[in-house]
Every structure is written in C-alpha cells, then in structure tokens.
Design a protein around this nucleic acid. Structure first.
Lengths: 252, 252
DNA sequence: TCAGGTATGTGCGCTATAACACGTATAGCG
DNA sequence: CGCTATACGTGTTATAGCGCACATACCTGA
C-alpha cells in the first residue's frame, strides 16, 4: 500500500515537462532523503544544490534579528528550492529548512545551468514558478500583518497537509510559533481550541487533521488564494488524487 | 539650479548598462510624466508598459480585501516597474501607484522583449533587480509584522526622500496609513511625536524632513538593510550625490 | 526506577493598535 | 466673504498578542 502511494508522488514541476527535457533533467539528478530539521540553505548564503521535493516539504524562513523567525513560503512536491537559479543567482534571501521528512531530486547548481541551456520549457516553467513564489511572498506578508493567529494557524496546517501527503505529521507548538512569528503559548491556546472542536488532534508533536473541511472554514482566504495563484500558471498539482488515496488508507 | 538637478538624475538601471545596450534601449523608450496618484497597473492584471523612473516614485501595494492596503516596495530611479517581464510574464502581483510625481522612461512590453533578445547585460541587470525586489518583499513582510508604527513610518519617510529627490514631498496621513497598513490616527500620533522632536515638519500633506540623521536613528534597521541588499548586486545608486546637491539648495 | 529533557497548559499584567467617534483648522472655491 | 471638503488632533473602549513565569504531562535513557 505504502509503496503504491510513493510511486504516485512525483514532483509537479518535473511532471510538467515534455518527456525529452524531463529525462535529461533527471539524468543529472540524484535521489536524496530530506531529513526533518535539516537546514538546506542558510539565510543570504549561496547554495550548491537545488531540490525538487517529491514528498516532504521545506520552509522558507526570513530572519530579522533579534526577532522570531517568520515563514514566508512552503515548498513541497508542487515546487522547488533554489528557483532563483533561473536568474543566474544561486542565493535565496531566506533560510530553507526541512519541515516534513521525505524524498527529493537533487541537482548541482552548475549542472542545472547546463541543463537549462538545452531545455527552454524547463526554463519557462521555473520562471513561472518563481513568479508564483513572489505572489506567495506578498500574500504571506499581508496575511501575517492582517490576519489573526487562529486563521493563520489553520492555513498553515492545511498547507502542511497538502505537502506532507499524510493526515498526520510532526510539528511542535514551538515550531509552529516560529513559523507564524508568534509566541509558543499563543499557538498552544489556538491549537487547544481547534482540538476541543475536533478539527485536529495532537500529542507531543504529532498532529492529526481530523476535520479538514472545518479547518478550511476557520482558515483565512489566503489558503485558497495561494492554490488559485498556482493553478493559474502551472495547473492543478497532484494533490487531489493523493488525498483520495490517503483517505482510503486513513481509516484502516 | 533646478535644471542642474534634473539633468543629474537618471535611472540607475539604465546607467548601469554598457553604452551600446543603453542607446538601443533608450531608442525604444519615450519620456513620460508620472502624475501623482496615477494607477499604472492594477492588482493582478497585466500591464502594457514598463517604466524606468528618473524622478518621482511608484509604490507596490498588495490588496487583501476587506483589509487596508499594504505597501510592499517602492520603485524610484534605482529600479523599474514591470521587472517580472524578464520572466516572460507581463503581470505584477500588486497594484502600482505613483506616490511622487516625476518623469520616467516608458517602453512597451513587446518592444522590451525584442530589446532583451539583443541585450544580454540588460537581461542580467533586470534579473538582478528582480532578485533585489524579492529581498525587499521579504524584508517588508517581516518589518510589517515585527516592527512598530513609529519605526516603520520613519523608514518609509526615508525611502520616500531617497526617491523624491527633494526634502519636501506630498503625503497625507491617510496616505501613509494606507501604505503602512494601519489606522490614519495612528499615523497622526506617530507623526506628531516626530514633529515635536523636530525630525519632520508637515502641514496639510506637505511633509518636510528637517533632521534626517535623527530619523535614521528612529527607523528600524530594515532601511539600511534594503540599501545594503541593493548595493551588493547593483552598486551604489546615485542617491548620495543628489543628497549633496539638495543640501546645498536646501538652505537658501 | 528515577532524573532530566521535551511538550503542553495556564495565568497575569502590559502595550500597541483596532474600531469608532467627534472636534478643529486650513485651503480653495463659488 | 463664507461654505465645504480636506487634513489633522484627540479621546474612549476593547482586544490580540507580548513577555514572563510557572505548573503539569509525557518520553527516554542511565
């Protein structure tokens, strides 16, 4: 069963390519494991590898000392880490941390540049994704400024679930607080309310989404807006089919 | 005197190009006036022209109904409006409004695409500027979330002055409030304190910066960080020489 | 089995800002 | 010259989230 799911999960950007380009790109990639908590890229430092997650997900986090961190975007199998490479700049203005373990295709900076020469469609896809990322940044900014903790928490859980490919994933309150740029105890209170209303269930870092529909109602519209922005340029990620698979498994 | 200043103010991105490319680009541009309040581009709609301001400045504003607007970046003679064009996408995920009147070089979308084919250095410069814009977005996001009204107001005034090429410019409290995503009366209070401390002086929309050094101290570090991010990739904009000129004029 | 780390629950006082409301002054127009 | 819109000043109440502090529950390993 589990292998069945694995084989269905690919990276949507790669899937999106014509076969020729896809094969060329993959011939330069190697399969790596994304381990929870790994920092793939430090804030404002260059990177040597780019990652196309297939499962698991990566957070983009800004740091503005002496303040808490603040998450600006999430990268799962619908995107990639290091897309600024199409600008010729192997830097990302944020820290990239693995938030959900999984697997990814990895390629070196130099090799991608070579591949890009021969793959116009890849180039164009990455440019579109970069644009989407900019949209996400501006949504996140406004969301963090105007929306309240419970709405933002709901959104974050939904986005994580979309990318975790599981109803259950590992997130402590402290971690969520760092992503949302708020106090840990604030998250505890908001999550407590959600648990009382049976939207989620958690214990010592293991969060389980029990009522996704209700969670979508609590969330701010930024969640839907993000999905729409993505779909407009790059189409529907494979999210839905995976959800169906998961639901079949989810009640054993 | 005033003409002397005018002739010294150019667009830094254009200045940055080798002569050959600069002349080719300019041969496709026309000179236009940026009138205060003009909306050059609506939120999430395509644009037909790109602008390289020489004086005056343009704000990039996100809108998340039903909330107030929130400014994410400012474009003056150090940048351009429509840089997403290097991604092949003539859209900007924000509204663009003229906040300070001035003049700009304007070029059509199709023409720029032609010119880009022949100008590798232009392409690379625009890519660098796009990267800088992304950095600005993430700084603005964190700044709006963590920093307080007075700090943010100070930063905004400094950034405006840098791009207005004048110690005095037109900004009502309501306008500032919309940029900062806060209440109008909050701005009134913060600006009142600054006026009492002789940092600024204002009356019915005309704001005059009287003590720039002190204003820089009140501002959050995001102001300096923005400048640094720009300088790292594209060097020092012509800001300083202009400041000197202005100061000579400033005390008649 | 006990200690110590990790995760979560809860409370208290404080501050910034929201929402709303109303008062005052100035410019510019008829 | 006076009207009116615009710009600015001020106040009152409510609340979300902060900083800090401490209590409780659970896991894990010596």
């Amino acid at each position: 069963m589990s292998t069945c799911v694995e084989s269905n999960i690919t990276n949507h950007l790669i899937e999106h390519l014509p076969e020729q380009e896809r094969l060329l790109l993959l011939s330069h990639c190697e399969l790596v494991v994304l381990q929870f908590g790994t920092v793939l890229c430090e804030h404002n430092e260059g990177y040597s590898y780019l990652y196309f997650p297939m499962s698991g997900f990566i957070s983009l986090v800004t740091k503005l000392p002496p303040h808490k961190p603040l998450e600006m975007g999430v990268i799962g199998n619908e995107g990639m880490l290091g897309v600024t490479m199409v600008l010729g700049l192997p830097t990302v203005p944020m820290q990239a941390v693995v938030q959900g373990k999984g697997t990814a295709w990895r390629i070196g900076v130099g090799e991608l540049q070579q591949v890009l020469q021969q793959c116009p469609q890849l180039r164009s896809t990455l440019m579109q994704y970069l644009f989407i990322l900019m949209q996400q940044l501006s949504i996140s900014a406004a969301c963090a400024h105007f929306h309240e903790l419970d709405q933002r928490l709901a959104r974050w859980l939904l986005m994580s679930q979309d990318r975790a490919h599981s109803n259950e994933f590992h997130l402590t309150h402290q971690f969520l607080a760092d992503m949302l740029g708020v106090r840990r105890s604030g998250v505890t209170v908001a999550a407590g309310v959600m648990q009382q209303n049976n939207l989620i269930q958690y214990s010592r870092g293991k969060i389980n989404i029990t009522n996704r529909n209700a969670l979508e109602k609590v969330s701010c519209t930024c969640y839907q807006k993000s999905l729409d922005d993505y779909k407009r340029l790059l189409g529907q990620p494979s999210r839905d089919s995976e959800r169906r698979l998961l639901t079949e498994q989810g009640t054993p």
